[in-house]
């Protein structure tokens, strides 16, 4: 037994180190490169400066696309949460025929690659003379992100004790008081978690955005993709560093407000 435990610990340790290496190292390298003084991408970086960050902020096109991405992510988050939370309530608490089928239908887009959703919405939109635009990205992104929101909230709702609602009504609360004071506070961690997840996904997703965004108002992910193809300066690394910082900030705020362990539903 002892020997087996020991071997298990070593294997686990190796896998953990390897995973850590694969996950963390590329990010560390990118961040390191973004502080280089030189004109080209190279590792290890030479010198230390903020020149690529300054240059980045000077490029109107990048700033504009960052604003576009923020706008898209915000709208997508609002729509995905509105639809996702209501759908989750209906699917968990509702009693109607075909509930299982509807559940399968709502979470189905999760099985599709983002590219497929992007192309499908592009073609479908063209049919109604609706073309590539922020609105189209938001619609496609909402479809793409909805299953995550629905699943997270459903998982939380499924473990909520329905007798808490009865207890509340028994104590004199109305249905809406019960919803606001008892149900929502307990579902909130899942809603916030889903919101953060959708926001980050909608902000940096490229497969959906590539097909649905307008060439005149590119989201940041598409802009970055173009940048990498035509410009291999460390500005790309600087942009990536900022995105990493951004995601990190969201995670920290999340952990502070609701606790990371409560995100695991």
């Amino acid at each position: 037994m002892g020997a087996v435990d020991w071997v298990g610990a070593v294997v686990l340790g190796c896998v953990a180190c390897f995973t850590l290496l694969l996950l963390i190292m590329p990010s560390v390298i990118v961040v390191a490169i973004s502080f280089t003084e030189k004109e080209y991408i190279g590792f290890p970086p030479e010198g230390f400066s903020f020149r690529w960050f300054v240059e980045l902020l000077g490029r109107d096109q990048i700033i504009e696309s960052a604003v576009t991405s923020l706008r898209i992510a915000s709208f997508t988050t609002v729509f995905a949460l509105l639809l996702g939370v209501s759908a989750a309530f209906a699917l968990v608490r509702g009693r109607f025929p075909g509930r299982m089928a509807v559940t399968a239908f709502v979470v189905a887009p999760q099985m599709l690659p983002g590219m497929v959703i992007g192309i499908a919405i592009l073609f479908f939109g063209a049919y109604f003379a609706f073309y590539q635009s922020d609105a189209m990205v938001i619609i496609a992104m909402t479809v793409f992100c909805l299953p995550f929101a629905v699943r997270l909230v459903m998982a939380r709702l499924a473990v909520l004790d329905p007798t808490l609602d009865e207890a509340s009504v028994g104590l004199g609360a109305t249905k809406s008081q019960t919803f606001l004071r008892i149900t929502m506070p307990q579902v909130m961690p899942a809603v916030i978690g889903a919101g953060a997840f959708v926001f980050i996904e909608a902000f940096d997703n490229i497969t959906v955005a590539l097909f649905t965004s307008s060439p005149r108002g590119r989201p940041l992910s598409v802009e970055l993709y173009n940048l990498v193809q035509f410009d291999s300066s460390p500005i790309v690394a600087a942009l990536s560093s900022l995105e990493i910082l951004f995601a990190l900030l969201i995670m920290i705020v999340l952990a502070r407000s609701i606790g990371l362990d409560r995100l695991r539903t």
Partner: peptide
């Protein structure tokens, strides 16, 4: 039930955890 003013103690107590 919210207009009956009847006190109900549930088998599981149903205390509000938050």
């Amino acid at each position: 039930p919210n207009h009956r003013n009847v006190g109900f103690v549930f088998q599981s107590y149903a205390l509000f955890p938050h």
